Simulated assay, not measured.
Amino acid sequence: MNEAIDIATLVGFVGMVCIIAAYAYLTWKQEPNPFILHGTNLIGAALLTVSLLVHTNWPSLMLEGFWAAIAIWGLFKAMRDHRRKT
């Protein structure tokens, strides 16, 4: 494996770090901020999708689609809950 890392792969690695960081944040924080959690997951899914559009892997691409959809739903839910509290 002597291939150089292209920009799409680098973008995918950044997305992977975002998703892992969001999961770590969820695990470590007693009361995680849902905007940070779901926003970071959405950014990670979007970045991984960019990488997967260049280096197509259909199962992973579908996974990122669901990951993004769940993050968007979580953000909408957090916004709704925030509006109810204020």
Rank of each mutant, 00 (worst) to 15 (best):
T40E: 10
W67L: 14
L37A: 09
A68W: 00
D81S: 07
I70P: 09
Y23G: 08
S60K: 05
S60E: 10
T27W: 04
V11C: 12
T40G: 15
G12H: 03
V14G: 02
I19G: 08
R80P: 00
T49L: 14
P32D: 04
L53P: 03
A4M: 12
G39A: 09
K77D: 14
T56A: 12
W28K: 10
T9S: 13
Y23K: 05
F66M: 15
M79K: 08
A8L: 03
W58N: 04
W58K: 09
L10S: 07
F76P: 03
N2Q: 03
I70K: 07
W58D: 07
H82V: 02
A68C: 06
E31H: 11
T27C: 15
T56I: 15
L47W: 01
L75V: 09
R84N: 05
P32M: 03
L47N: 01
R84S: 11
M62T: 11
L48A: 13
Y23T: 15
R80Y: 02
T27A: 13
I5T: 12
M16S: 10
P34V: 09
T40P: 06
K29E: 06
R84P: 02
L75R: 00
I36N: 06
W67V: 10
D6K: 06
T86I: 07
W58T: 13
R83S: 06
A78H: 01
G74D: 14
M1R: 07
D81T: 00
G12S: 04
T9E: 14
I7T: 13
R83P: 00
T9L: 10
H55R: 14
N41I: 01
S51Q: 13
A22R: 04
T56F: 12
V11F: 02
H82C: 07
I20A: 15
A45Q: 08
L42M: 15
F13L: 15
I72N: 08
D6W: 01
L61S: 03
A68N: 09
I7V: 11
L26K: 11
M62Q: 06
N57Y: 14
T9K: 11
V14L: 15
G74V: 02
A69G: 12
G44R: 01
V11E: 07
G39T: 00
G39C: 09
M16C: 09
F35N: 07
F76M: 14
F66P: 03
S60I: 12
H82S: 10
A46M: 11
T40W: 03
G74Q: 04
W73A: 14
A68M: 06
L47R: 01
W58C: 04
R84V: 08
K85Y: 05
T40R: 05
